[in-house]
Design a protein around this nucleic acid. Structure first.
Lengths: 162, 162
DNA sequence: GCAACTTAGTTTTATATCAAACTATTTTGC
DNA sequence: GCAAAATAGTTTGATATAAAACTAAGTTGC
């Protein structure tokens, strides 16, 4: 961490700004800025947790939603998980490739299909759930008694910012 | 929005789950889940704001930090903006290409260089700042009087989750 | 009952991000 | 002072995501 200490002494230079004197300026009070920092940090930590096995962060929410809603369609998954439908396709392809989910045709709509977990998928979900629970427990510990308030605010931002 | 209503009536099917009956299950109470949703929504809205001009979301934080800290180096930018140093390089290249920033050598360290805004960069930053301020004002409106608490929690998550 | 519109899913393209590997320097420990 | 370790910056490769364009199928309005 030893930063460039003596440099600002130089004349023709406005002063090379070292780490500990950075001014965040307006960013300091921007919700959007800290929302990004917090999400990145949380996602990184989650990746570290799950990545230790053969798991993938993107799989958990999808597997969990299929597990809790057998027969769910890709478009419903997209809406429930808050991701664009075009990002669901490759995840489902992976999950199929590893035989964690099964597709069944939807009677009455040949465009769509119904998803469910295979036994292997249920096992994988169980294992992923442990990691996820541990991860969110860490977050819980950080926010202490203000979890309900934080969740309410985040839900509100997610739902109404657009 | 007319969803597939009559489908669950079919026998051999566990019931095709339509949008309005989705159970989020554990996700419902996961901070990480709503952190992602909120950040994605906020980022999308920001992109919409800035994208109307010739602006780019990634540019604002960087320009703002350079503007507030003339002489800042790429590595200090990386830390202050919370992004990996490898993501700073291409942004700086773009900003250089549009003559919004200038590089100056750092006396005493030939690996690094000092950054500053050109007059054009200052103008661009001023314009971007308006959009950013408007965006964050929307977020402020959503969180009402609980902004300080939200910021404190997000800062804490960003700083301590790793 | 057919044309127009809408919806489900996929593919393609673009952006944001991290991580690892690499080069060129600088700093540190004897 | 020199070898080893650390640091600054870049490049390359991977993943997460959205958006737009496309295909196929369903729904609606006369």
């Amino acid at each position: 961490m030893s930063e460039t200490i003596g440099k600002a002494a130089d004349a023709g230079n406005a002063g090379t700004t070292s780490d500990r004197e950075i001014h965040l300026g307006p960013l300091e009070n921007y919700i959007g800025f800290y929302l990004r920092l917090a999400q990145n940090a949380s996602f990184k930590a989650f990746k570290r947790h799950t990545g230790e096995g053969d798991l993938r962060p993107g799989w958990f929410a999808i597997l969990s939603l299929i597990g809790g809603n057998p027969g769910i369609t890709p478009i419903a998954l997209s809406r429930a998980s808050g991701r664009d439908k075009s990002t669901i396709t490759p995840v489902l392809r992976d999950l199929m490739r590893f035989h964690l989910i099964a597709r069944e045709s939807v009677p009455g709509d040949r465009r769509s299909y119904a998803l469910s977990l295979t036994p292997a998928g249920k096992e994988k979900l169980a294992r992923l759930s442990e990691h996820a629970a541990r991860h969110d427990a860490e977050l819980d510990a950080l926010v202490g008694g203000r979890k309900a308030e934080l969740l309410a605010l985040l839900r509100r931002i997610a739902a109404e910012i657009d």
